[in-house]
């Protein structure tokens, strides 16, 4: 028996309404990645993560749970979980993300911050106010709940005096740049992906990396937001040879990730098909630029080929190598990761 769509979407909507995120997590966990980086609190220009990279380890753990429920008699009882979740944050209690995943995704954000710092871009961070933008609710067609949440985000940004947002993932970029102006009155913030900001700043690589990689365009960056040339320019300037898969740029092929919470098995099939296309193009590693693509393609690869966020490839060229940080409050693997 397939998973009950209404109950799963309902659970996300309940969380967004009651806890301001489709998958709530504490501010302490969501902001831990920024420890020790010296990013000022607030300012006119802020790095806005929308908590997507922070949420992915928990979402991945939840999907593993749902995979076991999908097509079993347990799927009939998901509605009970939804009702219990209204009282207790069951979604957070049920899914236990791996420490390695948490460290990996925190490493992405730390590298993005360091890339911007290295390029001389001034920015702050909103720490506990860095709210989820609502992409999953919007994509699920929950327009009323989404609009209410978007107004909360707008009010917070007005209160904090923010004028420019530097985003880190395509879904948050799309919400803040293209959807919020349609839904909200008076939304006039400038929104740019950090890839666009770095490319426009003409960031200079500190060292050249001679390596073949294959690029996977995010559907949302490529087809919704037109972010196609910037990641390629940054990689090529760093010395990488960028291989293009059969479906690339505006014709990119989805990773399957967007449906993994509702149809985990089908999502995996799509991920495997995309990985085959990427492997056929050749390259020592797959470059992704979206947390959902990163998770889906890493699952599909099962270690057969490195699948990494573009920030890792860029940091190798644009950031100085540094010894692992001490006392920054991050697991050693992350400290190494960001070095």
């Amino acid at each position: 028996m397939p998973l009950p769509t209404g109950d799963i979407v309902g659970l996300m909507v309940d969380n967004l309404e009651r806890r301001s995120s489709v998958f709530p997590m504490s501010a302490r966990k969501a902001t831990r990645w920024a420890r020790g980086l010296g990013i000022p609190d607030g300012g006119e220009t802020v790095l806005y993560t929308g908590a997507m990279y922070q949420l992915l380890p928990s979402i991945t753990a939840m999907v593993r749970l749902l995979e076991r429920v999908e097509d079993s008699f347990l799927s009939r009882f998901v509605f009970l979980g939804r009702w219990a979740n209204k009282v207790v944050n069951l979604s957070a209690l049920a899914a236990h993300p791996s420490r390695a995943d948490v460290a990996h995704y925190a490493g992405v954000l730390r590298r993005i911050a360091r890339l911007l710092q290295q390029a001389g871009i001034p920015f702050g961070y909103l720490y506990g106010d860095d709210m989820y933008a609502g992409a999953l609710a919007y994509d699920s067609g929950v327009d009323g709940g989404f609009a209410t949440h978007a107004r909360r985000v707008q009010a917070m940004l007005q209160r904090r005096g923010v004028r420019k947002l530097i985003t880190v993932d395509p879904h948050t970029t799309n919400m803040l740049r293209s959807v919020y102006p349609e839904v909200l009155d008076g939304w006039d913030l400038e929104v740019k992906s950090y890839l666009e900001v770095l490319a426009a700043a003409g960031a200079d690589p500190l060292q050249t990396v001679r390596r073949d990689v294959v690029i996977h365009d995010s559907c949302v960056y490529a087809r919704y937001e037109g972010v196609i040339d910037e990641p390629r320019a940054l990689l090529r300037d760093a010395g990488y040879r960028v291989n293009e898969p059969i479906f690339s740029r505006e014709q990119t092929f989805c990773c399957g990730g967007p449906i993994e919470a509702l149809f985990p098995s089908r999502a995996k099939e799509i991920g495997r098909r995309r990985l085959e296309q990427l492997q056929a193009a050749g390259g020592e590693g797959v470059v992704t630029m979206c947390p959902i693509c990163l998770a889906a393609l890493r699952t599909a690869a099962e270690g057969a080929i490195p699948v990494e966020d573009i920030s890792l490839f860029l940091a190798e060229a644009y950031c100085p190598a540094s010894p692992p940080r001490k006392g920054a409050g991050m697991p050693a693997s992350v400290a190494t990761d960001v070095g």
């Binding site: 979407v9 014709q251 967007p258 449906i259 509702l262 149809f263 089908r266 799509i270």
Partner: peptide, 16 residues
């Protein structure tokens, strides 16, 4: 066809 409607990836390969 509710399941089919929610299976769409919203990837816009079709729309493109």
């Amino acid at each position: 066809q509710a399941d089919v409607i929610f299976q769409c990836l919203l990837c816009k390969a079709c729309e493109q």
